[in-house]
Design a protein around this nucleic acid. Structure first.
Lengths: 108, 108
DNA sequence: AGAATACTTGGCTAATATACCAAGTAACCA
DNA sequence: TGGTTACTTGGTATATTAGCCAAGTATTCT
């Protein structure tokens, strides 16, 4: 494998890593519905606001969300439209896995 | 957020986490081309075979690949057809990000 | 200016992840 | 049966992540 390919894989992996946390997935799903302030997301998630803020930084660094200051509030929004497709595929993996487990239990 | 939703997000995050490593992405891309033994994947990646084997275990536990013993060899194959779609979306994020960086540099 | 609101950042700890080497196991071959 | 091939697993060191609390910053309100 050459350096260029390594860099490409690393870039992709970083985006996946940014999404690979329940809280961050929750944020992304919520932002699909529309822009939200940090306070709203914190209420939804239930962790400390500083924790939510750090998760938002991770998503921002990955290029998945953008932020904008309005008064004292900071409003976050999704920057990419396709994250849901994405999740459709993840769901397909889960379904596939579930079907197998059922097959195991029913012994077919 | 209720427990059921938390479980759903956790399940999705686990799949994303399994994909969120350059070596594992490399393995998945290679397996898109066809089934491969651990040795072949090790040659491609260049890490210790034990390291590659552990990455394969992660992918297997996530339900993304399956394995089969043939003689002394262990052959891995992809279990889900859609991982590439998936990556198409990741690529879209990268392109989006790149365009912005270009816009920044050219000052438009 | 001083207080309040809405975040972000720093500091810390605990948990997880990753890589290597060495040792163990399973199937085949001589 | 003993050796070889092809992996996997255990052990260990290091690095990264995630959470909370406390402190810092920016904007608005009085």
């Amino acid at each position: 494998m050459n350096e260029k390919q390594k860099a490409r894989l690393l870039a992709r992996a970083e985006i996946l890593k940014a999404l690979a946390h329940p809280t961050r997935l929750c944020i992304v799903e919520e932002l699909e519905k529309g822009e939200r302030g940090v306070g709203e997301l914190t209420d939804l998630i239930g962790d400390d606001m500083s924790t939510v803020s750090k998760h938002l930084t991770v998503l921002k660094n990955a290029g998945l969300v953008s932020d904008e200051k309005r008064g004292t509030a900071v409003i976050y929004r999704l920057r990419v439209p396709c994250v849901m497709n994405f999740m459709g595929c993840v769901e397909a993996v889960l379904t596939h896995r579930l079907n197998e487990q059922i097959a195991l239990v029913t012994g077919s």
